[in-house]
């Protein structure tokens, strides 16, 4: 899994690509933790290029969300594919990780 980032000063758009799973989730979580440590507490995870997420990937997103909120920021998700949205709904995590349709919608108000 690879990722790209775009930091516009107000928030960071984090764009992972591929499978967000047992193998890649720890790497993604480490990177999100680094961003938070650098004071980047508003993060959008643009999931358009993630074709599969498992419970490890969900755990990484929840961990990132908790870290961001502890710093007074937020972690939001955008443009999630069908499998990701289905898994969020199945686990009821869509209540705390609302899937926004676009990055623009997710960053509304920041």
């Amino acid at each position: 899994m690879t990722y790209t980032e775009n930091d516009n000063g107000t928030y960071v758009v984090f764009v992972p690509e591929g499978k967000f799973n047992l193998v890649t989730a720890p790497l993604m979580k480490d990177r999100i933790d680094e961003l938070l440590k650098d004071g980047k507490a508003n993060v959008v995870v643009d999931l358009h290029a993630v074709d599969f997420i498992d419970s490890s990937g969900l755990g990484a997103l929840i961990g990132g969300l908790k870290g961001a909120r502890q710093q007074g920021g937020d972690l939001r998700i955008a443009d999630a594919a069908d499998q990701v949205r289905a898994v969020l709904k199945l686990t009821n995590l869509d209540r705390i990780l609302t899937p926004f349709a676009t990055v623009e919608e997710a960053t509304n108000g920041w």
Partner: peptide, 19 residues
């Protein structure tokens, strides 16, 4: 049961059982 919303792990088997 599915763990609480803030849990970072422990969902895998519950998810499988739901599906």
């Amino acid at each position: 049961a599915m763990p609480g919303d803030d849990a970072e792990g422990g969902r895998g088997l519950s998810m499988a059982e739901m599906i």
